Amino acid sequence: MKEYFSIGETARLNNISIQTLRYYDKIGIFKPQCTDRDNGYRYYHVKQFFYLDIIKYLKYIKTPLEEIKRIISHTCTPELMQTFLEEQENVIEREMERLERA
């Protein structure tokens, strides 16, 4: 099985734009596993797709990019991520209740 994917392949496989991947690289949220020194092409390892799924989910629940960067950084433990996601679940539930009352 293939392990490394170009930015175009990564975008297609994960239903995200190339521009978004470039922006995430620029701001340090999601960097490619390696970059070709000669042509600057970005290559992502298949194991990174897990983090991209997390980023997409956090964006879906309207988490700010700075918060996403903190959450997926290597200093964030799985326990901290779980706590954050539980907090977000509470926020979503409160918002749903507010919308139902309206």
Rank of each mutant, 00 (worst) to 15 (best):
N39K: 05
F50I: 12
I27K: 01
I27D: 02
I61S: 10
E97T: 11
I27L: 02
P78Y: 14
Y57G: 00
L58E: 02
M96E: 06
F50Q: 15
Y23H: 09
E97R: 15
F30I: 02
I92C: 07
I68R: 00
F84M: 03
I92Q: 07
R42K: 15
I71K: 01
E79I: 12
E86T: 08
I16H: 09
Y60P: 09
K47F: 07
K59D: 05
E86I: 12
E79A: 09
I27P: 01
R98Y: 14
R12N: 06
R22W: 01
Y60W: 15
D25I: 01
T10F: 05
E97W: 07
Y41T: 05
Q88N: 04
Q19P: 04
I27A: 02
Y23L: 03
F84I: 00
I92A: 07
I16Y: 10
E3H: 13
V91R: 15
G40C: 06
R12Y: 11
Y60C: 10
T75V: 06
Q33C: 00
D25W: 01
F5S: 09
Y41R: 14
I16F: 08
I55N: 01
D36E: 13
I18A: 03
A102R: 10
Y24S: 01
Y4E: 10
I61P: 09
Q48Y: 14
F5C: 05
D25E: 13
G28E: 04
K47W: 03
T75F: 12
R37I: 09
N15D: 12
L80T: 10
I54G: 04
E67K: 02
P32K: 08
Y23T: 00
N15E: 15
E93V: 03
P78M: 07
L65R: 00
R22P: 00
E86G: 02
R22I: 00
V91G: 02
D38R: 13
N14K: 06
T63H: 05
D38Y: 12
Y44F: 14
E79M: 04
Y43W: 13
F5H: 11
D53T: 05
Q19G: 15
N90G: 12
E100G: 00
D25C: 03
H45P: 03
Q19W: 05
Y51R: 10
F84W: 02
D38P: 00
K59V: 06
I18Q: 14
S17H: 10
F50L: 07
I29E: 08
I18D: 04
F30Q: 09
I16C: 10
R70T: 13
I29C: 07
F5P: 08
E89S: 13
